[in-house]
Nucleic acid binder design. Structure first.
Length: 302
DNA sequence: AACCTACCCAACCGCCTTCCT
DNA sequence: GAGGAAGGCGGTTGGGTAGGT
């Protein structure tokens, strides 16, 4: 048996593969080698076809903002099911999506790493910098079932035409409180992607523990992040001012939470200069959370 | 110009599932 | 039903390259 070839594909190999697929369809990958057409494994042939040679692929085309949004939203819903996510993105492969997400994650990790305060800084200074944290009883570690570990918590909310974006008034929602006090249907199918009018979502990434500095957070890697390790940069208003004043008790018992009443806090409240639609919210929050070092769009550009 | 760093992306690896005998 | 082959998928790696110092 001839030796298996690895590494980058040559144009001639591609042509052989394309010819095979034209003749027999995208199957019988192993027969390519057994027939002596190529010295590649069936798996390698299949991968080459799926990722590079298949028609209508968007090779070399960067992800559009819409595609990025879709990936972020679907990742929140499905977890790292790249093949599944890719089915929502015409011309994109699971590898594309995976690489895109991985790249984003690395950027995020870098951002967070750069935000880490001095190592000697005591932990309690964190809570000092987050004055509006709700007082919560000591909480048990959230019991995450497999589906919860797979995907982050997604909370749907009804939104109003105004919200509080002054950082001083922000309350952060403790994740365990959310998990323990609500009947989130983690064992059921999550809602479909379509938003209803006047609805927005807060997506709490397990990979983004910044929002919950006072609790251990389960990461994708199966290791809880101790709060001492949590990078904090609370002056990053761009990250945080998307959250209205929202206490754990506001959430308790029901996932659907009217946001507007609890937002009213006198002069802290500002009217938005643009209509807060579900799209506009999603436009800004998840995408910019990963990307916030880029210049923010001015409202006039909405 | 040389070096470093970050990023992108193609391809491989290992595990799991499905299919076939 | 058991076992092996093939296919599918997610994680990881390594090379190329662009941008910064």
């Amino acid at each position: 048996m001839s030796e298996i070839k690895k590494g980058p594909w040559k144009e001639e190999e591609d042509q052989v593969l394309i010819k095979h697929v034209k003749k027999y369809g995208p199957r019988d990958w192993s027969s390519i080698r057994s027939k002596g057409l190529l010295q590649r494994t069936g798996k390698s042939c299949r991968l080459r076809w799926v990722n590079k040679l298949r028609p209508n692929l968007k090779n070399g085309v960067k992800f559009s903002a819409e595609e990025e949004r879709t990936v972020i939203e679907l990742q929140a819903q499905f977890g790292n099911k790249w093949a599944r996510i890719a089915t929502y993105l015409p011309g994109r492969t699971d590898n594309d999506v995976k690489n895109f997400w991985s790249s984003r994650q690395k950027r995020l990790a870098k951002i967070l790493r750069n935000s880490v305060p001095q190592p000697s800084k005591p932990q309690k200074s964190i809570s000092k910098e987050a004055p509006a944290l709700p007082k919560v009883p000591s909480l048990e570690e959230p019991k995450l079932n497999s589906s919860m570990e797979e995907r982050p918590l997604v909370v749907s909310q009804h939104c109003s035409s105004s919200y509080t974006n002054n950082f001083d008034t922000i309350n952060m929602v403790p994740l365990p409180e959310l998990v323990n006090s609500t009947s989130l249907p983690f064992d059921q199918e999550l809602p479909p992607l379509e938003f209803t009018p006047n609805e927005k979502r807060i997506c709490i990434w397990p990979q983004f523990p910044l929002l919950f500095p006072h609790i251990p957070v389960q990461t994708n890697f199966g290791q809880p992040l101790e709060h001492q390790e949590l990078p904090m940069k609370l002056e990053d208003n761009d990250l945080l001012d998307y959250f209205g004043q929202l206490s754990a008790s506001d959430i308790g018992g029901n996932v659907q939470v009217p946001l507007a009443p609890s937002c009213s806090s006198g002069q802290d409240q500002r009217e938005l200069e643009y209509p807060l639609t579900p799209d506009s919210f999603i436009d800004d929050f998840p995408l910019d959370m990963f990307d916030y070092i880029d210049p923010l769009q001015s409202p006039s550009g909405w």
